[in-house]
Design a protein around this nucleic acid. Structure first.
Lengths: 202, 202
DNA sequence: TATTCAAGAGAGAACGTTCCTTCTTTTTGG
DNA sequence: CCAAAAAGAAGGAACGTTCTCTCTTGAATA
């Protein structure tokens, strides 16, 4: 029985998802079509439908798994038992996220793909649920880091870790958005601004 | 000649855009169709096409003009010659943005619509240009506020206003994104977090 | 003032296209 | 040699747009 090996199957599946991500970031969410993804993947219609039930499942997986990869990439930074001060932590986070695509040399900007996912998740309950879970767990990681700061005495113990975590998540998401919108959001500016604000004079 | 009055024409045009925004926030960018918008508007196909050249022009105008409205709404806060400290300023900004839809009672969450626009602008050059201009001018308004802080001596004069403006824009955009994604991002948390971070102990 | 008329404005059916999916045929590999 | 896998043509629905017909409106006319 000429069944393809599980490894090869997984490889092909990921190949299709990469094609979908390329289409997503090149043509945008509403312009992406099955024909596009199929052409980009180099496979045939039948082949692609052998791996996914339909378009929604592809877009869904492309976004969800791409975001999960990003999450896995930054997790070590947020789990650091002795987290650096906020500006340095943010520098580590943002540059890790920014370099993720470049390091892999796959030409995919996962931040851009994630942002399309934000839009898509509004109309796709499954994606919405997956996205919600991902970002909530990220926020919890942030909150734990905040608690470590408090333990170390570098932050007011009376502050609410959940609130600060929420703000930090906003900064990361906003960085992604501003980058996509203006093209010139950069890590150094964000880090510099945090340093300046935290050392204010009044 | 039975021409409709310019006022009534503008009214109808805005009515169509409102219908488009409702469809956008209810069904998401990729699921929204002409049929939907037309049905929601209560007009006929021919009528709608008398006001707009096509779908792209409607989506474009719905997002661009909605964002412009938001911009106009927050402008006074950013032009305040004696801006309050950052946490209070951010409180004014975020709650103004958040309440904008509710105040109008039109059931439209312009933050959500704007976020769909972020995605759409990636594939629509005209929208991208309009969006870029809007957010850049917002950033400049932020930068001017930062300079006022510096003049008033509440912020390090050596800090770069452009960098801080970039961070503040990220916080606002991130607030919008997190709100759409998790549904529980809230103004008080963001303000509280800013207060806590700016009064840190180290 | 009542009537007529021409053109703007609206309605909705219809058209051609695009798109997602399925189905049949061909190839491949153990 | 056989079944799994891929290929690619074909089907059927949905979508954006156009086109024609009807209605409305306001001014010109008697």
């Amino acid at each position: 029985m000429p069944k393809i090996s599980p490894e090869r199957r997984e490889e092909r599946r990921e190949h299709i998802l990469q094609a979908a991500r390329l289409c997503l970031q090149e043509h945008g969410l509403e312009a992406v079509s099955m024909e596009m993804i199929i052409a980009r993947s180099g496979l045939s219609t039948g082949a692609v439908y052998g791996y996914f039930k339909g378009k929604d499942e592809i877009i869904n997986a492309a976004v969800t798994e791409g975001t999960a990869e990003l999450g896995r990439e930054v997790a070590p930074i947020l789990r650091n038992p002795e987290p650096p001060p906020l500006p340095e932590l943010m520098r580590q986070l943002l540059s890790t996220i920014e370099d993720f695509g470049k390091d892999r040399n796959d030409g995919i900007d996962r931040l851009l793909v994630a942002m399309h996912g934000w839009s898509h998740s509004q109309s796709n309950p499954e994606l919405k649920a997956a996205t919600l879970a991902t970002y909530r767990s990220q926020r919890e990681l942030f909150a734990e880091t905040v608690r470590r700061w408090q333990s170390a005495g570098v932050l007011d113990p009376g502050a609410d870790p959940e609130e600060i975590a929420q703000l930090l998540v906003s900064i990361v998401l906003g960085f992604a958005a501003q980058r996509a919108l203006t093209g010139d959001a950069d890590v150094r500016a964000h880090v510099g601004a945090l340093e300046a604000l935290m050392c204010r004079r009044d």
